[in-house]
């Protein structure tokens, strides 16, 4: 993973700051950014153990050419934007976050956008902390890595082959709230999620390590096979 060494250094500094009892993350802009980033967290990870999930991991994004991280399958539109010279500067990130589908026509990121410039400033400042190589790192010390690791799911459960037809039937219960076309206002999109991500998140609700009671209740009612069926269906949905 690019930049992970640099990140470790920053992390060490963070623990040092924590140890001195300094007012860590008291910067209201970063607090705000951390809050707004929750909107992103259903698809993006950032921090020490971040991995690609629905979307690419966001460590070290500053200064990176768009669509170039290894191990993540970008939309053709995002790869083309990178080849055309799109580099993630503060301005580029802000423009993209304002209206992703306009900024990169054809992006597969199903996110309506952040219309409020203050929200964009905050989340971009928040992300900058995870790009230790970036110029102009803000004065504020980095916050502790985000809690974004869902519990590991046993491999035999991840390996279950789901029946997408059964998943389609089961999905009728999901789409009362999660819009089938991938719109994500208020409730995250689950359309097009990679299967293992879907299974991991559902198991996190099943074990109550994620705390939305609606989802805990639904996950509890689904067997491992049924979750696999849903994962199989939703991974292909919307294509």
């Amino acid at each position: 993973m690019r930049g992970s060494g640099g990140y470790a250094v920053v992390l060490a500094a963070a623990f040092f700051v924590l140890g001195t009892g300094d007012a860590l993350a008291s910067d209201p802009l970063l607090d705000q950014g951390r809050k707004i980033f929750r909107k992103c967290q259903s698809c993006h990870q950032v921090g020490v153990s971040a991995k690609h999930t629905v979307g690419p991991l966001l460590n070290d994004i500053y200064g990176r050419r768009a669509g170039t991280l290894e191990g993540y399958r970008y939309s053709r539109a995002m790869e083309a934007a990178g080849q055309d010279g799109l580099v993630w500067s503060e301005e580029a990130l802000s423009a993209y976050l304002e209206d992703p589908k306009s900024a990169v026509h054809g992006t597969k990121m199903n996110f309506g956008g952040l219309r409020d410039p203050d929200d964009r400033r905050a989340v971009v400042a928040f992300l900058r902390q995870f790009s230790p190589g970036a110029a102009n790192i803000p004065e504020a010390p980095p916050t502790a890595p985000l809690e974004n690791a869902d519990p590991e799911v046993p491999p035999h459960i991840l390996a279950l082959e789901g029946d997408p037809d059964y998943g389609e039937y089961l999905s009728s219960e999901c789409v009362t709230c999660h819009q089938a076309d991938g719109e994500d206002k208020g409730i995250p999109s689950i359309t097009g999620w990679p299967g293992d991500r879907f299974v991991t998140v559902m198991h996190a609700y099943k074990t109550k390590s994620r705390d939305n009671p609606v989802m805990q209740s639904i996950a509890a009612s689904l067997s491992d096979e049924e979750i696999a069926a849903l994962a199989a269906y939703f991974s292909k949905a919307g294509q």
């Binding site: 789409v175 709230c177 819009q179 089938a180 994500d184 206002k185 208020g186």
Partner: peptide
Amino acid sequence: YEESLGWYAGITAD
């Protein structure tokens, strides 16, 4: 509250 907005959009599309 925001969840309810998502639900409204979801159920009316459904």
